[in-house]
Computed example of a mutant assay.
Amino acid sequence: MKSYQLTFKQRFPISLENAWDFFSSPMNLAQITPSDMAFIVTSKQDPDEKMYAGMIITYKVSPLLGIKLNWMTEITQVAQEKYFIDEQRFGPFKFWHHQHHFRAIPNGVEMTDILTYGLPLGIFGQMAHGLFVRKRLKEIFDFRKAKTTELFGVMA
């Protein structure tokens, strides 16, 4: 299986604690996901529940052409206010490993997303990656960057 990796960095003029509280809550993911994906968290989570290793989160999502898919991820590692990792257990990818890293910087916080993923269907998955998957993932993270900039502002 061929794997791919994308890295995204963003800086916010908010505290590490505020960044952690927002991004580590599965309930906030829908508001930073493009609306055309019809993203809905379907797992029954207490909005105040803190993320923990072993947490299972389920979603409905339409990544392409309005086709609805079920997606299940597990939070596999958590280091409070440093990083967390989610991995797909069921969904559209053959492999999905998403690291979210946080570090305090002067006047704010830097967040780094490292996404490593693989697609099903062998050569057809590789062709799909070149034709639209990579582009779509970049669009999703560009939207996320724009939305979080709207929510938190930009570093001066």
Rank of each mutant, 00 (worst) to 15 (best):
G91H: 06
M51Q: 04
M111W: 14
V109I: 14
L115K: 11
K68A: 10
R103I: 08
F84W: 12
F84R: 02
V109R: 06
T76I: 11
Q31K: 15
A53Y: 00
P63R: 00
R11K: 14
E17K: 08
N70K: 14
A53Q: 02
M37D: 06
S24E: 06
E81T: 03
F95N: 13
S35L: 13
P63K: 01
Q77T: 15
S25Y: 04
H98W: 13
K9W: 09
F90S: 13
T73K: 04
A104P: 08
D46Q: 04
L65C: 03
D46N: 13
T73H: 07
F90Q: 13
K9V: 14
T76L: 04
S43P: 03
S15V: 07
Y117M: 05
K60H: 12
R11G: 08
T116A: 14
K50H: 07
S43I: 05
V61C: 04
E74C: 14
Q99N: 15
D48I: 00
T42F: 10
T73D: 07
K82C: 02
K68P: 10
F102W: 08
E49C: 11
M111I: 15
K44E: 12
W71F: 10
V61M: 11
Q80R: 13
T76W: 11
V41G: 01
D21V: 10
F95L: 14
F39I: 07
Q77N: 14
D46R: 03
F102V: 08
G54V: 02
P63Y: 09
P13W: 11
W71E: 07
T33S: 05
H97V: 11
T58E: 15
Q31D: 12
F93P: 00
K60Y: 10
A104M: 09
P13Q: 05
A79D: 14
M55C: 01
I57Q: 09
I75Q: 00
F22I: 01
F90D: 12
D21L: 11
F84K: 02
Q99A: 13
A38Y: 08
P13L: 05
M55T: 01
G54A: 03
G66F: 15
D86W: 06
R103P: 01
A19L: 11
Y83M: 12
S24Y: 13
S43C: 04
E81Y: 07
P106L: 10
T73G: 05
M55E: 01
M72I: 14
P13C: 03
N107R: 13
I14A: 04
A53P: 05
Y59M: 13
E110D: 09
L65N: 09
P63D: 00
R103S: 09
A104V: 10
L64S: 12
F90P: 06
Y52S: 03
D86E: 12
V61S: 04
M111P: 12
F93E: 01
E74S: 11
R103W: 06
G91W: 12
Q88W: 10
I32H: 03
D113K: 08
Y59A: 04
V109D: 05
